[in-house]
Structures are given as C-alpha cells and as structure tokens.
C-alpha cells in the first residue's frame, strides 16, 4: 500500500532522513517510535508530501507521489492525516469540517455527505457536538472530530502524526480507543506516537527510528521484549522506567 525507497530529506544543511526504506501492506498497522528529532514526523509528512522529498521515491497503492498540482491533491485525498494539533477548521462547525472534503473533492451530494458525517461522528462518540465549533470542544473531542474528518474521505491509508501528544492525560485514551478500533477493522495505518501501550495493543509492526534512520523493525512483542540494538534498548529504558 505504501512503499518508500531510498528516501532522503534535508532541511538546509540538516540531513533529517537518511536512506529510508519502508513498505506497509494493506491493512497493516505500523507504529513509528523513536526519540524526538529522529525524523519520525518528517517521514510521516513526506508520505503525503506536506514535506517535499529530497531524494528517493514514495509510492501509495502502486502510484508514485506526484510533485504538485491537481494530481497531488487527488492522491492526498486518498491519504488521511491526523495532526498533533488537530487543525480543525476554526470557522466551521464540526459537521462542516467533515463534509468539506467529501463535497468539494469527492463531489458527494450535501445530504449524503451529512449522513456519512453523522455516522462517523457517532462512531467516534461525539454526534452531539456536530453543530459546535472546534473551540467549544475538549482536546480529545477535537482529535476524534479530526479522525472523523480524515475517515470521511474513505482513505486508503491513515497517517497519524503524534495524535495524542497535545492532549491532557485523561483524554488520551478516548482517542486511542478510536484508533484501536480502526486498526481492528483493517485500516492501513502509520502512527507516529510515544504511546507504547497503543503500539503493544494495536501494532502489527514497530519501527524504531533514530537520527534519521530506521534502526530496527519488528513485531511489538519482539521489539519491547528483546530490542536488538543498543540504541533501542537505551530508548526503551528511558521511556518505560516510570
């Protein structure tokens, strides 16, 4: 579904992604972990070209990522993204946030898009907030609305860029629960996160990044029980201590 080959990325002189190879099969849930500054988020953002690619190739469902223009917009419609800071459209109600993409990009009729949006909102448990504006919602509710907005496009793959990092601790679980249920239903997901509990519960594979490289990749059981590299052991000991 997603295929990354020899991906490099530079920010000026800073070499942030170094020769990344990553293949994600349809229905697979890949969790990307690693210390901050390791390039996880940049990798995630390269997959729908919110960041340009320095060198190498990214393919989504067998199609190379177009450089720009309408072709890129079309491809992005198939790749959902959930951001750390939610990024719901502040001037629109929750319902209008969700129907914008389907009506403008997919040309779905307004009534159908609304029905679909309500179903999704029920699914993420905030149907009663449909007519509220984002600022009237808690962080957890906003992030669930953002997940509904991404799902409304019926994406082939969903990218999560640290979806719970901006949330108060008591709201983390309501978002993770939605993500776990998506994973269980067979959605292809790439999740950048620090939630090791989620990785254990829902991931098919854990990818460990450090200093712009993929250092280690394996099943959650193997990775957490017996990390093969010193750097992964060091990282896990730091975050699992308390």
């Amino acid at each position: 579904m997603v295929s990354v080959r020899g991906l490099h990325k530079w920010f000026g002189p800073l070499h942030v992604l170094k020769d990344i190879d990553l293949t994600v099969a349809a229905g697979e849930v890949v969790v990307v972990v690693g210390p901050s500054g390791s390039g996880k988020s940049t990798l995630c953002r390269c997959l729908n070209r919110l960041e340009t690619v320095g060198q190498g190739s990214v393919e989504i469902d067998g199609e190379p990522l177009p450089a720009e223009g309408r072709a890129l917009a079309r491809l992005r419609a198939d790749v959902g993204m959930v951001f750390q800071s939610f990024n719901l459209f502040g001037h629109k109600t929750v319902l209008d946030n969700i129907t914008l993409g389907p009506t403008r990009v997919r040309r779905t009729s307004r009534t159908e898009a609304r029905q679909q949006a309500m179903t999704l909102l029920e699914r993420v448990g905030i149907a009663d907030k449909a007519d509220h504006h984002p600022a009237q919602l808690s962080g957890g509710q906003q992030q669930r609305a953002a997940i509904a907005r991404a799902l409304a496009m019926r994406p082939k793959v969903l990218l999560f860029d640290e979806p719970t990092s901006a949330l108060d601790p008591e709201m983390v679980n309501e978002v993770l629960d939605v993500m776990v249920s998506l994973a269980a239903e067979g959605m292809t997901m790439i999740v950048v996160t620090h939630e090791m509990g989620f990785a254990r519960r829902a991931a098919d594979r854990v990818v460990f990044m450090d200093d712009g490289r993929i250092i280690e990749s394996g099943t959650p059981d193997d990775f957490f029980a017996a990390p093969r590299t010193e750097r992964a052991r060091d990282f896990l000991s730091k975050i699992l201590q308390h």
Binding site: L50, N87, V105
Partner: peptide, 23 residues
C-alpha cells in the same frame, strides 16, 4: 491563519485555490 489550517486543507485533497477559498 495558522500553517496547520492550510496543511489540513491540503491533506484532505483540496487544491491551492480550494483551500484558499474554503479555509
């Protein structure tokens, strides 16, 4: 308007013109 708004608009597949107009 925050950069995140434009990124979210592009991420759901809106073109430059559409994200300008609707977001």
């Amino acid at each position: 308007v925050g950069v995140g708004q434009a990124e979210a608009a592009r991420a759901i597949g809106l073109t430059f013109g559409q994200s300008l107009r609707h977001v």
